[in-house]
């Protein structure tokens, strides 16, 4: 059903090549290490205190930022102390160093980076802006991800993920929904990324974007057939619907009072199990499930209200009914006997 990958990492070369253009990253030294060194954490670190000898908190997988204060600090050291400060950094264990504001680090630093095969990068941007861009880029690149088999649509503004075994009719249902004006995000394979503690973003793999496979028709292009308005970009997943054949769907909810959910990448997502059988129009059911979901998100649960009215009805009937009172008395007597034993 799904295929999870461990915490992703990127090489420094990928970082240099794919980072936002505004950063205009240049490699000053240590190009030999571009492929081997990897960035594993999205948050950056400033080299500041480490240069002063406090190297304990250097995280090997982070981008180390060197700005004006670090350069000044190194510049005012005597050549010997500068050399020992640089040596203490253990450059072999750092993923890469990014110098901001187009500052030029001391020659000793450049030489040490070259020797240690440590990629030493440079950007014209000031630290505050560079740090924002780098963090945002790395958070997206390093977000935990998972490929799921299913169809993701944007319907009534909600990202709805349709899942179920192959051949159960997910794509056909999606086509029906597109015909009704809803929008396709991804067919067959959905790339899910966790961009925040409660935020799952689903997207189509680059190759498959805008395409669907319909049995008997083959691969079709949705933009060609329905126009650009039938497509949506990456979308937050708000609801998952699983199609199951009647026999497998023993645990189908008949009341709809309880909110069900499943976990994707550690995030709970509202979930509906829909039994599939001839004569059930899946597109209509999905649309209805979405309307119900939207009402519930806004605090209205029709099933709960009906059940509350029913409970009230039962209480009133019980008060009026002698049968219940007799039962109560009999049970009270039984309890009394049990205690006497």
């Amino acid at each position: 059903m799904s295929q999870a990958s461990e915490q992703p990492t990127i090489s420094v070369r990928e970082f240099v090549e794919r980072a936002p253009a505004q950063l205009s990253l240049r490699v000053l030294a240590g190009a030999v290490g571009l492929d081997e060194r990897r960035i594993t954490l999205p948050r950056i670190q400033k080299l500041g205190l480490a240069l002063a000898g406090f190297t304990h908190y250097i995280h090997p997988g982070r981008v180390q930022i060197v700005g004006q204060s670090e350069i000044w600090y190194l510049g005012q050291l005597s050549p010997e102390r500068r050399a020992s400060a640089i040596e203490l950094l253990a450059l072999e264990q750092i993923s890469c160093v990014l110098v901001t504001k187009d500052l030029l680090p001391p020659a000793e630093f450049i030489a040490a980076a070259e020797r240690a095969a440590l990629p030493l990068l440079q950007t014209p941007l000031v630290s505050s802006i560079a740090i924002n861009l780098v963090t945002e880029f790395l958070e997206a690149m390093l977000a935990p991800r998972e490929l799921r088999h299913g169809v993701l649509l944007d319907a009534y503004g909600v990202g709805v993920l349709l899942e179920g075994e192959s051949g159960i009719g997910k794509s056909e249902c999606a086509l029906d929904l597109i015909g009704r004006g809803h929008r396709l995000v991804a067919d067959d394979t959905v790339e899910v990324r966790r961009l925040g503690p409660e935020y799952l973003l689903g997207a189509a793999p680059d190759l498959l974007r805008e395409h669907m496979e319909i049995r008997g028709l083959g691969i079709i292009n949705i933009r060609d057939l329905y126009g650009v308005a039938a497509l949506s970009g990456p979308k937050q997943i708000g609801l998952t619907i699983r199609f199951a054949r009647w026999q497998q769907a023993q645990e189908v909810d008949r009341l709809g009072v309880d909110a069900n959910s499943i976990e994707i990448l550690g995030v709970r997502v509202p979930h509906v199990l829909l039994p599939v059988s001839p004569g059930r129009n899946l597109a209509t059911l999905v649309e209805t499930a979405l309307r119900v979901h939207l009402l519930r998100v806004r605090g209205y649960n029709a099933a709960e209200r009906l059940v509350a009215r029913h409970t009230e009805l039962l209480r009133a009937a019980e008060r009026a009914d002698v049968g219940a009172n007799e039962l109560n008395e009999r049970e009270a007597a039984d309890d009394g006997e049990a205690k006497a034993d």
């Binding site: 008949r254 009341l255 009906l306 029913h310 009805l313 039962l314 209480r315 009937a317 019980e318 009914d321 002698v322 049968g323 219940a324 009172n325 007799e326 039962l327």
Partner: peptide
């Protein structure tokens, strides 16, 4: 049928 069963309004003690 769930709705039909609810409509019985069978409280405790109902036969």
């Amino acid at each position: 049928s769930i709705l039909s069963v609810l409509l019985l309004a069978a409280a405790r003690g109902t036969e």
